[in-house]
Amino acid sequence: MQHAHNNHCWLFGDSGYPLEPWLLTPFPEVQPGTQEEHFNQRHSSVRNGVERCIGVLKKRFRCLLS
């Protein structure tokens, strides 16, 4: 997912990707109640929505499965 603010763009990626200036990945091993945990929860929520959308598209357009 891409987010633009003040002519900057970021992509949301999972923890399998390295951190890049343009890629937001979750923080590893966060403490409960911290800002990092809150970020990870919001990040996960965004990614879950995107994953569900991709699933719907793949169900409708079977050619996307390969």
Rank of each mutant, 00 (worst) to 15 (best):
R60Y: 05
N48G: 09
V50G: 03
V46Y: 05
H43A: 05
N48V: 08
V46E: 05
V46N: 08
Q35M: 09
R42Q: 15
P26E: 06
P32S: 13
F12K: 05
V30A: 02
S44K: 11
T25I: 15
W10Q: 06
S15W: 06
E29W: 00
E51H: 10
H5A: 12
L64G: 09
C9H: 11
E37D: 13
S45Q: 14
E37R: 01
F39I: 03
G55R: 08
C9L: 11
S45A: 13
G49W: 01
L23S: 07
C63N: 07
V46I: 15
W22C: 12
R52D: 03
K58R: 15
K58N: 10
N48T: 10
W10R: 09
N48R: 14
F61M: 11
V50C: 10
P28K: 03
T25K: 04
R62Q: 13
E20Q: 15
V50D: 04
D14T: 06
G33A: 10
H3A: 15
C53D: 06
F39D: 07
L11T: 01
P28T: 05
H5I: 04
L57R: 02
L24R: 06
P28D: 10
R52H: 10
E37N: 02
D14K: 02
H3T: 14
H5P: 05
F61N: 12
G49E: 04
H38V: 14
W22M: 09
L23T: 03
H8Q: 13
R62D: 10
P18C: 07
I54R: 01
K59S: 13
G49R: 08
H38S: 15
E20K: 13
Q41D: 14
V50S: 05
